[in-house]
Simulated scan of single mutants.
Amino acid sequence: MRLGLIGFGNIALTLLGQLAETLDAPLEHLTVLCLPEMTGETQARLAGDFAKIAKEAAVVSDAGALLADRPDLVVECAGHGAVTAHVPPVLRAGIDVVIVSIGAMSDAALERELRAAAAGGGARLILPAGAIGGIDLLAALGAAGGLEVRYRGSKPPLAWRGTPAEAVTDLAALSEAHTFFTGTAREAARDFPRNANVAATLALAGAGFEATHVELVADPAALGNVHEYSVVSPLAKYSMRIENQPSAGNAKTSVSTVYSVLREIRNRIGPVAI
């Protein structure tokens, strides 16, 4: 496989580490798109820690150079801005893209652009389940309509630092769980871009951004990132609770998100997809 990565932060580094441990053979080629000022550091890391992950590796700083390396699949793991800047031209070039920053699609104009780019290029925009489960069932039930979806995301106060939660809650002083946000999935994904990708995933798989109800909670008793949601449909009812361990490099991200992306890559390479 010729793999492209957009971003070289915590998620990308963890993903490369897992690929190094699980791949039966090195990738044919790896291309990493990063910020221009990070090119030297990224090249050094690839040549050192990840030297055996691919037969060839390259570092670029724009989508044109990424496309010139002819990737079979591109994974975005760099944030909402990277989705806007780099994903549309990759899709228009006919290359499938896995996006981790699914919350970027809370921007209705960007969602339309991404869908049009994928259709125009004959490519697929792949939305991994990330830190949540049951997306296959939710998407199946969505075809029948009439969905009611309610999501509650709870994380330790530390995970909400640097977000609008600080403006309405004294995170350091919390002694019990506090719900600081109630609204739609679109509002949650827009206002908490690093914390509410799960809300966007549920919305896109099910009832839509406006009809998916979201609560965000800072809980000092939470040992990890807890995702709970319930679904009511004319066909079935179910609820799910997942307690994820936070990523070692970023408390805002559940480590299972990386494994979800790893699954997408392994399904591309292996003889069986599940």
Rank of each mutant, 00 (worst) to 15 (best):
174 L>C: 01
52 K>G: 02
134 G>Q: 03
65 A>W: 03
59 V>A: 11
104 A>H: 12
129 A>V: 04
105 M>R: 04
165 A>V: 00
142 G>S: 13
58 A>E: 15
92 R>D: 12
40 G>H: 08
129 A>M: 07
42 T>E: 02
95 I>F: 10
118 A>Q: 05
153 G>C: 04
69 D>L: 13
152 R>N: 02
98 V>M: 09
174 L>H: 01
160 W>E: 07
121 G>D: 12
81 G>S: 13
106 S>P: 00
47 A>F: 08
99 I>C: 12
160 W>C: 00
63 A>D: 12
136 D>W: 02
62 D>P: 09
42 T>I: 06
69 D>V: 07
81 G>H: 12
51 A>V: 11
159 A>V: 05
152 R>M: 06
97 V>P: 04
97 V>I: 07
147 L>S: 10
73 L>A: 06
88 P>H: 09
102 I>M: 07
89 P>E: 07
119 A>C: 06
160 W>Y: 02
101 S>R: 00
124 R>A: 14
74 V>S: 14
50 F>T: 01
164 P>V: 01
126 I>R: 00
102 I>Y: 11
149 V>F: 03
126 I>M: 09
133 G>I: 02
39 T>M: 06
102 I>S: 14
89 P>G: 04
114 L>F: 12
127 L>C: 11
133 G>L: 02
171 L>C: 06
66 L>D: 14
48 G>A: 15
61 S>P: 00
49 D>S: 14
54 A>S: 15
145 G>S: 05
165 A>G: 10
86 H>G: 06
130 G>P: 08
162 G>W: 11
110 L>F: 10
79 G>R: 05
97 V>L: 10
74 V>K: 12
44 A>S: 08
155 K>R: 15
152 R>F: 02
72 D>Y: 04
141 L>Q: 08
62 D>R: 07
152 R>H: 07
92 R>M: 14
109 A>W: 00
89 P>C: 11
121 G>H: 14
93 A>H: 07
66 L>K: 13
73 L>P: 01
155 K>I: 01
154 S>A: 15
163 T>C: 07
121 G>F: 05
77 C>V: 15
72 D>A: 14
95 I>H: 09
51 A>R: 13
94 G>D: 06
119 A>R: 04
53 I>T: 08
84 T>N: 07
79 G>D: 00
157 P>H: 00
60 V>I: 09
112 R>V: 00
158 L>F: 03
148 E>A: 12
72 D>Q: 09
86 H>D: 04
39 T>V: 10
100 V>K: 09
80 H>N: 10
91 L>Y: 12
83 V>Q: 11
155 K>A: 15
59 V>N: 09
109 A>G: 06
124 R>P: 14
149 V>L: 04
149 V>A: 04
37 E>R: 05
167 A>N: 04
98 V>W: 06
139 A>F: 01
140 A>H: 10
135 I>F: 07
101 S>G: 13
104 A>F: 13
156 P>N: 09
38 M>T: 04
39 T>C: 07
56 E>S: 15
100 V>F: 13
57 A>T: 15
50 F>D: 10
80 H>W: 07
73 L>E: 06
79 G>H: 03
150 R>L: 05
105 M>N: 03
170 D>Q: 03
143 A>P: 02
73 L>F: 12
120 G>Y: 06
130 G>C: 04
156 P>E: 10
111 E>C: 13
60 V>G: 14
141 L>M: 08
82 A>E: 03
125 L>I: 06
